[in-house]
């Protein structure tokens, strides 16, 4: 079935210059392999099409059941150089949680959010 990342993960984001840093954390251990498989650097780059104009790097932190993403060239120059409302990437966490991913049907019982489509 298809769910939003919001239903299986939480996130925190911030900036380093013109780069957005988004940490994505599985809400339960059984969701972590889904994040690793589904939320690739390429998918994140495509998800932020029109926002991220540079490279997307992904780092795995199995110890925290988390992935960390660096989205380069994404903040209109960053810091005080940016004309964006969200110059510090504070809401990129929520933007990433909009992404829809495929999860095994048997996980439906432990997902608190409402599945979308397919389920």
């Amino acid at each position: 079935m298809i769910v939003r990342l919001l239903d299986i993960a939480h996130a925190r984001s911030g900036d380093k210059g013109d780069t957005a840093n988004i940490g994505l954390i599985a809400l339960r251990p059984e969701f972590y392999p889904i994040l690793v498989k589904e939320v690739t650097a390429d998918r994140v780059k495509a998800h932020f099409n029109g926002v991220c104009h540079g490279l997307v790097e992904r780092f795995e932190l199995r110890n925290l059941m988390a992935l960390n993403f660096l989205l380069h060239n994404s903040l209109g120059g960053g810091g005080t150089l940016s004309l964006r409302t969200d110059a510090q990437a504070k809401t990129f966490s929520a933007a990433l949680l909009r992404m829809e991913v495929e999860v095994p049907d048997e996980l439906g019982d432990v997902i608190e959010g409402r599945p979308r489509g397919g389920g």
Binding site: R12, N21, F59
Partner: peptide
């Protein structure tokens, strides 16, 4: 664990 993990990931960069 969730609130601490979120802060650990905040502006973390390359975790290694």
């Amino acid at each position: 664990v969730a609130t601490v993990a979120e802060q650990l990931l905040y502006e973390m960069g390359d975790p290694s």
